[in-house]
Design a protein around this nucleic acid. Structure first.
Length: 183
DNA sequence: GTTGAGCGTT
């Protein structure tokens, strides 16, 4: 049960109204221009940002649209939720995060609260408070928290659909009858 | 055009 004084704060299921809409479930190939074109019909849009995966350079399948007016954002949210773009059914909600996160440096940036005798290094902080370093070593960005790290695509197992397709491709490997000619 | 679930980099 949620206490009533928290009613106005909003949460993930019921974000509080905002000028910023989060658009989820996008095709990886849907562009900011497309999104902008669609959402501008409901009012002036300040900017549209498709979130790009830093490692792959591809869309992460969601974006944020900043309306100038919160009222326009509200209308757009209602009108666009469930609409299909590039074959994907999109979900539209008020953004819960108000801005882009500041980049995570991959190292602990805070002050130590206690110091161990031997090397000035507190293990409790190592476990709980350090920014989590992305695996794979080598300078790649770190992650703010483990939760995000473990949700990231590197750690997801392939979907059943994808596994089956790979299996079938290898299974049905046959001698080349003909290859599509290159011209 | 690797899928799917998913709230963010410069």
């Amino acid at each position: 049960p949620m206490s009533s004084r928290r009613r106005h704060m909003g949460d993930r299921e019921n974000p509080m109204p905002s000028r910023c809409l989060g658009i989820f479930g996008l095709s990886l190939y849907t562009t900011e221009q497309q999104i902008n074109h669609i959402f501008s019909k409901y009012g002036p849009v300040e900017k549209t940002q498709v979130v790009i995966d830093a490692k792959t350079g591809r869309s992460r399948g969601f974006c944020f649209v900043y309306f100038e007016s919160q009222d326009d954002a509200k209308v757009a949210k209602n009108e666009c939720t469930g609409m299909e773009i590039d074959g994907r059914r999109i979900r539209v909600d008020f953004s819960i995060t108000q801005r882009a996160h500041t980049p995570t440096p991959g190292i602990y940036m805070g002050k130590p609260t206690s110091v161990s005798r031997d090397n000035g290094y507190d293990r409790r902080r190592d476990r709980d408070d350090y920014y989590y370093r992305g695996g794979g070593g080598g300078g790649g960005g770190g992650y703010r928290d483990r939760d995000y790290y473990h949700r990231s695509y590197r750690h997801r197992s392939p979907s059943p659909h994808y596994r089956r397709r790979r299996y079938e491709r290898e299974r049905s490997y046959s001698p080349r009858i003909e290859t599509r000619s290159k011209g």
